[in-house]
């Protein structure tokens, strides 16, 4: 592990200035992913700027009926927060489906968004990886490909985003508050994570020195039913093969609207806008579930080892829609 300096500023602006001034500096929050990367050699910063004193760790009500989640709120506290459990249960459920009790106690809201892919080649410095070392090639294309993306991947990278929380935030139309060297801005969560294209080394639209300070949620749609379903290879403590977050509204036997996001399928939480469009105004029927799910996955480009993800995603979404509309059919 390369030696690094450590500092712990009290204010977010100081933390941003410290990282912006040093190309080798990185923010440190819960450390659950970054400290592992230091050990693996995936990341070799010259300085760590600990932001746990600088970040807000509270959940506040917003004037419009939404909430503002400080980037320093631990995953466990957010999942257990009474207002989140009552008004945004899909977010609590997604958080509780991720990691373990110990990791949720450490990991922060901002850090969860910024965690990096668990692609085995990204984490193994002895193998080529365009995300870790641009231009070196993608080992996952020809290698172990079970976890690879089936939507939105490129010839340079087939990694998936590992977060459960971000999938729920995507369906909830969250906004990310960012403080950078030039001031504050807001990025819709749907545009926060990038698809890999020719630059898979960039997971998000953030630049060096940009610090996530909060996540804001709009008020939950009235009378919406929500669910988070995660499919994985064991019952607990594993990353998703496929996950679905859904926020749907039904009236008079028809879908009013639906907000749907997939995890495990792409380089970013995948907002299923084609499926949403296919459901809008349609009668609540088994056929509608199928058509919506098939429409979204029509663009899937699976590889040798991960073709199972396509029917798995279709069936999981159909199953979630069935469960959420059971009472109105």
């Amino acid at each position: 592990m390369r030696p690094f300096d450590y500092e712990r500023p009290a204010r977010a602006s100081e933390a941003v200035a410290a990282v912006a001034a040093d190309p080798g500096a990185r923010f440190l929050a819960g450390g659950t992913n970054l400290v592992d990367h230091l050990k693996l050699g995936v990341s070799a910063p010259t300085a760590l700027v600990d932001v746990r004193d600088a970040l807000d760790d509270t959940v506040q009500a917003l004037g419009d009926g939404g909430v503002r989640i400080g980037a320093g709120v631990p995953n466990s506290d957010l999942a257990a927060h009474p207002e989140i459990r009552r008004r945004y249960p899909v977010l609590s459920a997604a958080l509780l489906a991720g990691a373990s009790g110990q990791l949720r106690n450490m990991a922060t809201t901002g850090g969860n968004l910024l965690q990096r892919t668990r692609c085995v080649y990204f984490q193994d410095v002895t193998t080529p990886c365009n995300k870790r070392e641009p231009g070196s090639g993608c080992s996952a294309l020809e290698g172990h490909g079970r976890d690879n993306a089936v939507l939105g991947a490129s010839e340079f990278c087939v990694a998936t985003h590992p977060s459960d929380m971000a999938v729920a935030l995507c369906a909830l139309e969250a906004r990310v508050r960012v403080l950078g060297p030039d001031g504050e801005r807001t990025v819709p969560l749907d545009h926060f994570h990038r698809l890999p294209g020719a630059a898979p080394e960039r997971d998000t639209v953030l630049s060096h020195g940009d610090l996530v300070t909060a996540v804001e949620l709009p008020p939950p749609p009235e009378a919406a039913r929500t669910a988070y379903r995660k499919v994985r290879e064991r019952a607990s403590y594993a990353f998703a093969l496929v996950s679905v977050a859904a926020v749907v509204r039904v009236r008079g036997g028809r879908f009013v609207d639906a907000h749907i996001a997939f995890g495990g399928l792409a380089h970013a939480p995948w907002r299923a806008r084609r499926a949403e469009e296919a459901l809008r105004g349609r009668p609540v029927t088994e056929e509608a579930f199928r058509v919506a799910a098939d429409t979204e996955l029509a663009g899937a480009r699976p590889g040798r080892d991960n073709a199972f993800k396509v029917p798995l995603a279709v069936n999981t979404l159909a199953s979630v829609l069935r469960e959420l509309t059971e009472e109105v059919r």
């Binding site: 450590y6 712990r8 440190l28 450390g31 659950t32 400290v35 592992d36 760590l48 600990d50 746990r52 466990s76 009790g101 110990q102 990791l103 106690n105 450490m106």
Partner: peptide, 18 residues
């Protein structure tokens, strides 16, 4: 696993200096 200020955490992913 240890209790850090009474919460269970993983000491292997915690930097002592932090």
């Amino acid at each position: 696993t240890v209790l850090l200020d009474e919460r269970r955490v993983l000491s292997c992913l915690s930097l002592a200096v932090a």
